[in-house]
Design a protein around this nucleic acid. Sequence first.
DNA 1: CATGAATGAGTCTTCATTCAT
DNA 2: GATGAATGAAGACTCATTCAT
Lengths: 201, 201, 201, 201
Amino acid sequence: MPKIVDEQTREATRRRIIREAAGEFARLGFDQANINTIAEQAGIGKGTIYLYFENKRELFLAMLRYIAQAHMAAIRAAIAADGTLEQRLKRLFLAFARLAAEENDSFNVFMSALYGVNRAFQAEATKLLRDYLAVIALMLEQSRAHGELQCDNLEATALMVLSLTESYVLSARVLGQADTDIWKQADDIAQFILRGIGALA
Amino acid sequence: MPKIVDEQTREATRRRIIREAAGEFARLGFDQANINTIAEQAGIGKGTIYLYFENKRELFLAMLRYIAQAHMAAIRAAIAADGTLEQRLKRLFLAFARLAAEENDSFNVFMSALYGVNRAFQAEATKLLRDYLAVIALMLEQSRAHGELQCDNLEATALMVLSLTESYVLSARVLGQADTDIWKQADDIAQFILRGIGALA
Amino acid sequence: MPKIVDEQTREATRRRIIREAAGEFARLGFDQANINTIAEQAGIGKGTIYLYFENKRELFLAMLRYIAQAHMAAIRAAIAADGTLEQRLKRLFLAFARLAAEENDSFNVFMSALYGVNRAFQAEATKLLRDYLAVIALMLEQSRAHGELQCDNLEATALMVLSLTESYVLSARVLGQADTDIWKQADDIAQFILRGIGALA
Amino acid sequence: MPKIVDEQTREATRRRIIREAAGEFARLGFDQANINTIAEQAGIGKGTIYLYFENKRELFLAMLRYIAQAHMAAIRAAIAADGTLEQRLKRLFLAFARLAAEENDSFNVFMSALYGVNRAFQAEATKLLRDYLAVIALMLEQSRAHGELQCDNLEATALMVLSLTESYVLSARVLGQADTDIWKQADDIAQFILRGIGALA
DNA sequence: CATGAATGAGTCTTCATTCAT
DNA sequence: GATGAATGAAGACTCATTCAT
């Protein structure tokens, strides 16, 4: 009954597969990605993947969920409830910029899922999008409670904040801007948002 | 004389292929899209497509360029140099919203190309993104000349405007918002931007 | 519009595939038979088979139906309505013996389908079995009308006749009897049947 | 002492595997049958099967031999040397009918092996066929000694008897006849055979 | 002895592309 | 030019078998 050891090994293998899958999916997209290649890179046999994931689709979704968890953890940490709204906005923007830079693969694969055509994946990615919006809305609400801003429509505003952070970072990277250059814009973005939501009269 | 007629027929066929390709690619994505189906829907033989396009990839790119032209025409018309900056921003937002609603297929296919993983397609889609930014930057410059705003970094500001219009529309649709609801937000978005760029004291 | 020529070529290819399929299926059974091998032996490309048959299963069924037609033609010819009942019974037995000897592959594949476990194939093979019984019953009816025999239950009797001809041949071959030896038993079998059905008081 | 217990346990496990294998093979055929499923249904680990049987093929053959023993025992009991030839023939027919009805799985799997394409299995099944013929020939010989019939060629006659009993039952079942209906035909079949072999003037 | 996680050979099927007509 | 029959590379997935525990 070496259950504990097994469970650990199993989880480690599962992680390794997901990591390699993320690389492959990010590089080639869902259809072009090759299960055999993923297995090779994960250092396991071709059939072994199917002991961990039902099929290619489920592997992709599992990977997406794993990414989602990691990203949400990063975002939550970034806009933890301390400091001014300006500071939190800057940290949010920088969190997205860092994710895009350091978790390049998973950031790309998530964006592809979100804005791609495969509805099944879009549904899963949309969940993460809603989580983003929820924590942003929470941050705005807290700031409103602190009298830092007045705001009627929290949801719409949250979506504007998200567009000016995540989408901005995504577009900037697509346009070829260097990550360090993007980081430098944190101040401007934060200022823009604060003025936009009327927190900086 | 027959030259012209032939040329017209040829161009018409080319358009028909591209139109059907847009539908198929938007619905299924590049890999899942089927050349045979596109040919059938375009009312031509399977082999005929290869008389018009080198291969599947080139067909996709041609379609992307065709979409880009149409979209840019719509955007240019929307922010033609008349009216106040606020009016022009509202028209820009509404233009994106209408493209997303009425040219659903081509809007989706373009976003997939832009944020998807295939670099060749991303490069092509990025061109359109740059064109967007250029016309937005031009608009901002004209407004600055009119004294409507002060602005140091036109490029970064243009990207913020783009994020708050195109990306906002895209995200809102992914979240399942109705098109009519999105349209109603034009005023708020425009106000947000104007305040953000410091045009509304 | 070279329809006629095409139609002929197409039909020829179809026949060739079916012929090779019969050999492969008879030698290895449905599951072990290899579509690639069939294609190679038929002198066509791997994918071409799928232009003629939906999938492996449909190819098998088409082959079964083709065999059924050929066998029924042979059986009908054998017990054509001329000669005495004894002569017709001998011809029937010999027809089965010849089919088993000369159309070895198709005889085997049909028997496998009939007595094998795959229900879908069994259903198709059962149709042929019923056809056999129908023509045998018809023969018995004609003989009864001629006063050659008295018989209450035509169906059951027909099944006995079939068992003593087809099944007998099949069993004899499984037991390793030489085809020529089997042929020699036609007289005895016919006599047995005639006595059995009470036509030889 | 523990030797015997172990030996018993081992034999019991072997039996259980064979029993489950018979069900699986009868239902799906050799190729489609799944070793894993058999192990599960036998309540043992996948690998354990290989401690009892060399491989899938050997398991199938062992099962075939096991079935053969059981069937032969039933047939031997049915035509035990008491009663008239007519009674013994009826008991033979009913024995096959009961085997087909009550030992459905093993009857089917045996017939598949006998008339299927896999030569190795056919060889094994043929052994049982020869055993059948031997006991039938013995019965005929005993009847001849009792003066119940005259017969030159015992082997051929035995094969006819087998065709009119086993093969008849098999065909009747393939045609969908109910088991109870088949049983009712025992008298007719016996009469037919007796007349056929000249035992009923 | 018993187990079941790991393996990888094997196969059907799809579909972009070619080319003879 | 137009066609669509033919092609074959490519890949997801299964499952009998092994072997470390």
